[in-house]
Design a protein around this nucleic acid. Structure first.
Lengths: 163, 163
DNA sequence: CCGTATCCTAAAGGATACTG
DNA sequence: CAGTATCCTTTAGGATACGG
């Protein structure tokens, strides 16, 4: 798959029953792992943290968009391609497969000719969308303030360089 | 800055008062833009959509992590570097500057020697963290189901290839 | 201590062509 | 229609060295 041989490095394995970190799996000094103990709430800053890998998937260039569209209704491959401005066939295919593998999206092939393939969110997918939607809403609500912050920052920088 | 001359392509400019797209800024057929009209809720699938650019920033490899750490307390550069496993000085520096530019993080230089620099979340930063936290919590809560879905998918795939 | 500058590699992703 | 395969460009990001 893909150019070389790389295909999702070390994820498929070692997904035992999760959560239990084991007694110091890696090197390094002792620091917190899943401090869900109470108020503190720190998620693992380690590279091998599974949450980080899942988040990286979710937050890639196209996933959120595909999920948002599929939350509205079941869609076919070409429909999605049309709706998502700028996506290549390759990336749509890969994105959908990842989402399917993660149990976010369900793919249904109708054995007709020409073939018809439907993509729909799973229950977990809808649950995810509810959460990501909040993030998009936040971004939308704050985009003006962010734009303002950027302008201010850039102006300050420009002023400094003019000295 | 950076290798060549690239520096945040088309963002610094044209951040007028935001929101108003203007009469068909780009090419392309007419489709929905900010359908916040009512229930529909579709965020712009276009490439030039500002929300997408902001989300891409937020969802990069390190931002969420830095924000999560800073939500707990003010931290110094080297502290952050120590806490975030695997980050390079370069990326920490860049991440923090982006967040500062976006108004998420506030940077305070104490004119001592050796220099001491504090990083803290702004009000907007704390607000953002409240939202992203929900996403992390979701991921955490569903990681076992995701792992299971992956295993199932991989097994199905392996079975198909064995035919 | 807190960075920036330079160099370089690896991964993401687009374009295109081809298949069931 | 719904993809896969191949090739190639662009970007992200690590390593290192140096500066204030």
């Amino acid at each position: 798959m893909e150019d070389g041989t790389s295909d999702v490095p070390g994820i498929t394995a070692d997904t035992t029953t999760a959560r239990a970190p084991g007694p110091e799996a890696q090197d390094c000094d002792t620091r917190s792992r899943w401090e869900c103990d109470a108020e503190v709430w720190q998620w693992d800053a380690r590279e091998d943290c599974e949450v980080r890998q899942i988040l990286d998937r979710i937050a890639d260039k196209w996933s959120l968009l595909a999920i948002a569209l599929l939350d509205r209704r079941v869609m076919r491959f070409t429909e999605l391609k049309r709706e998502i401005d700028g996506i290549s066939q390759r990336m749509l295919s890969r994105t959908l497969r990842q989402l399917e593998r993660d149990g976010i999206v369900e793919r249904t092939v109708h054995p007709t000719v020409p073939p018809r393939v439907d993509y729909a969110l799973t229950e977990m997918g809808r649950s995810l969308h509810a959460t990501t939607k909040a993030l998009v809403v936040w971004t939308e609500a704050h985009q003006e303030r962010i734009a303002a912050a950027r302008s201010a920052y850039d102006e300050r920088e420009a002023a400094l360089r003019e000295l």
